[in-house]
Design a protein around this nucleic acid. Sequence first.
DNA 1: TCATTAAATTGTT
DNA 2: AACAATTTAATGA
Length: 241
Amino acid sequence: MNYDTSLHQRRRPLTTSELDAIPWIHLLSSVERERTVDDLKIADADPGEFVCRTGRPVTYWFGVVDGLLKMSSDNAEGQTMTFTGIPPGGWFGEGTALKRESYRYNIQALRNSRVAGLHVDTFHWLLDHSIGFNRFVMSQLNERLGQFIAAREIDRMNNPDIRVARSLAALFNPALYPGVGEVLRITQQELAYLVGLSRQRVNESLTALAAAGSIRVEYGGLRVLNLQALRATVFASKVVV
DNA sequence: TCATTAAATTGTT
DNA sequence: AACAATTTAATGA
C-alpha cells in the first residue's frame, strides 16, 4: 500500500485536463489508453506529506500533475540527503517498478501537489504491449542517469551560485519535466530546501543569475530566459573546479 | 467588479 | 533569524 495510506484513500479518477498533462498518454493506442485511464488515479498531497517511503514495496509508478515533490534518502547516520526536486510533468519510480523491488528513496510533497499513480501491474502490462511506452521509459531512464551524475557534481561544488544554477537547469529539463514551461513555479524557500542552502543565499544567487540574464525572478516562480546560459554557468564551473 | 484584509513571498540586514 | 515591503488570494459588499 503505497501512496502513504491516507493518500491512498484519497485517490480519485483523473479529469480530462489532468490526463492531458501526462506526457506519455498520447503515445498509447486507443486500447492501451483505455486500460491505462481505467487504472490511473490521482491524489492531492499536502505539504510535507510522503508519497512513498524507503523500503515500502512498489505498488505505483508516480507522476506529478501539479505542485512540487522532493526526492530524498536517509543515510546510515540518519541524515537526510536530498537528490532532486520533481516538478510537474515528472514521472519517477520506473527503476524500482521494473524490478518490483521496494522504494529506495522518500518522496515528499514540498507544497500542495496533485500526484498521479499507475499500478505496477499496469506499468508492466504497458511495457509488454506498447512500443511508444517503452521508448518513453527508456528515454526517462537515460535522462535520469544523466541527472544523477550531474547531481553528484553539484554536491562537490562549493560555489553556491553554481549549485543554484545547476539545480535550476536540472529542473528545467524538458525531457524529464515537460510540465515545466518557461516558468517554474517554485519559491525561493523551496529551492533553498532542494539545494541545501539558506533562503538568503539562494536569493543572492538568483539575483546574480538574473543580472547575468539567464533567468527572471518572479513572485512565486522563475522564468528561464536563456537555458543555455544556465547550463553554461555549470560548464564554466567544471573548468574552475 | 471593486475595496479591504489576510496570507504568502521576497528583499534586506 | 528577524523585519519591512511587495504580491497574491480570499472575502464580502
